[in-house]
Computed example of a mutant assay.
Amino acid sequence: GKSFEGRIFQAAYNHYNLPGQMGQWQNEFKAKFNDDFYTGSVIRIFAALTTAMVKAKSTDPVKVAAALEGLRFDGQMNGEVEMRKADHQLQQPLYITVWQKADARFPYSPENTGMTLAPVKEYPAYVSSTPTSCQMKRP
């Protein structure tokens, strides 16, 4: 609640106050189900799969997995993202948000608390990406 205002921070791949299509989906979901659409990753999952299936011209899992490698696609929330070839980890922006009172600038109020997680800093994918030592085995 309000006693934690300015004291709770979150690092995540999306946040409640993203503009554009994501904001529209969140508002529509809340209006229809009276609940929060907090798993924005499902949008990227469908975008990645659709793009990879079109590229592979198949729904065969092995062909789709190969098509995912190095795939760049519209993440539907904040621009282009990439599926890293080495380990199939999605390279995407990360956001730092802070718990604060919802206001005109950041109006979305999860669980109707009157509070929100407002963006403080965005780290683009090239900054948020970390090296990998993964030796992923492919079929």
Score class of each variant (00 low, 15 high):
Y38G: 15
A118E: 10
K2D: 06
G70Y: 11
N14K: 00
A66V: 01
K2W: 03
I43T: 10
E69D: 14
P19M: 00
Q135C: 03
R72V: 09
C134M: 06
N34H: 13
Y38F: 13
F37L: 15
G1Y: 01
V54I: 12
P107T: 13
M136F: 07
A48Q: 05
G40W: 01
A11D: 03
P93Q: 12
M115F: 14
A48R: 06
V81K: 03
G6R: 08
S109P: 07
Q76W: 09
P107G: 13
M22Y: 13
Q10I: 12
A12M: 05
A118W: 04
K85A: 15
M136N: 01
V64H: 03
A118H: 05
F46M: 14
P107F: 15
Q24S: 10
P107W: 13
Y13H: 11
D36S: 07
Y108W: 12
G114Q: 10
G23F: 06
P139R: 11
K2N: 05
S129A: 15
T50S: 14
P19V: 00
E82N: 07
R44W: 05
L18Q: 12
F4D: 10
S109D: 09
L94M: 15
E69L: 05
A104P: 01
V42L: 04
A118S: 07
I8P: 02
K85D: 09
M77L: 12
L71E: 08
A47N: 11
F4L: 15
T97F: 03
A65Q: 14
P107V: 14
R138P: 00
F29I: 06
I43H: 10
V81E: 04
Y13P: 09
L94W: 15
V64T: 09
C134A: 10
E5M: 07
E69W: 08
G114T: 12
Q24L: 10
C134K: 02
A11V: 13
S128R: 01
Q100G: 08
A65R: 12
A52K: 02
P61N: 09
D60F: 04
F106D: 10
I45D: 00
